[in-house]
Simulated scan of single mutants.
Amino acid sequence: MNIKHLKWYFIAILIVVLCFCLIPETQYHSFGFSIGIGTAVLAAFFVFLGIAEIDSFSEITYYSENPKSQDAATLLIPIAIFIIGTFWINTNFSNRLEAKIKKEGVIARATIDSGFTEMTQTSSGNYSDNTLALTLTTDDNKEYKLVADNVSAEAYRKVGVGLDVEIIYLPQNPKIFRVLVDDQSVKKFKNISNRDIEFKDLEKIITAKEPEKLEKLLNQMSSGWQRHQTEEEGFGFINNLKKEVVFIKPASHALFYVREKNYNSEAFEIPKERILKEVSDSVSVFYELDKYFVEKQIKYKKGEENGFINVENIMMRLK
């Protein structure tokens, strides 16, 4: 290899370095895969010039007369660089953007205005692309119309028009955001498991004396909790995404917990080893535990697609 041809490899490397140094990761939101494709094309082109041992651009016109034109590697290596480079550069930009949103993003609530699903039929099956339109009002009373593409099927099933959902957005550009509805996004951006409430949680919840403490406890388990206004004594929160309601009456040392689950889901479990007495009738099951009295009711209602939903009511009070 002639040393003067090394300049082409140097230029190829320089193009990639400048891409990462000069293009902010936020541009990936606007330009997407074109960043990786454009950079990889340029890098692969200059690698091709180096492999073909071309001295100047004018020699490209006579490439067919170049002895290297008969060597398959002269084209295969740049093509491989283009394919691998496109994937690597775009993956890098995508990961950097996600990390920036997680580090610098602000969590707020946005209202769902509309949503639609576009079905694509291919030889290998049908694919759905879910889209949501939302309205965000920031703390400085600026309103932004947002569009979330490629919403997961899990998230799309949970939401509806008019529902307030949590999002995380970049303050410098609120149109760069992520919807925090499905388990994966909640775990990724809020670092919580987004799990259902369990009996051990009710033992902590029943001790809450103020709404702020209850809200803190609930937000450590899952996302989507909102204050539930009621004229009754006490306070409560509702989670429309997970179909759960918690209500506490501190003066009575009582707690009410309601959740909806698919018919074939596991029922709310009370630790068997702590049950001292169990009595049931046609409506409820009554448990006496070491520290609590618990009543559990299960009702059924019609759900989507002719399915049924379990509605579990848990009433718990201290002895």
Rank of each mutant, 00 (worst) to 15 (best):
S64M: 10
L276I: 10
V147I: 15
Q27K: 15
E295I: 13
K142V: 05
I167W: 04
K100F: 01
I81T: 02
Y127E: 13
Y28L: 05
K319T: 11
V159S: 00
S69Q: 07
I309L: 14
I37F: 15
M315V: 15
K261V: 04
K200Y: 12
P211F: 03
I84N: 00
Q229A: 14
I11G: 06
Q27V: 02
K68T: 09
T138G: 05
P78R: 08
E25A: 10
G236N: 09
L136E: 06
A208N: 09
D182L: 01
E312R: 11
N191V: 02
W8S: 07
S280W: 04
T122P: 02
P271G: 07
K187A: 09
F82H: 01
P250V: 05
N150C: 00
I81H: 03
I101G: 05
A267K: 11
E288R: 14
S185T: 11
E154I: 00
V246Q: 10
S252K: 12
G160F: 10
F256Y: 11
V17W: 10
M221Q: 15
V283P: 02
K249M: 11
E215G: 00
M221N: 13
E118K: 12
P78F: 08
S56H: 10
L132G: 04
E25N: 15
L42E: 08
E198S: 10
A43K: 08
I84T: 09
K216G: 07
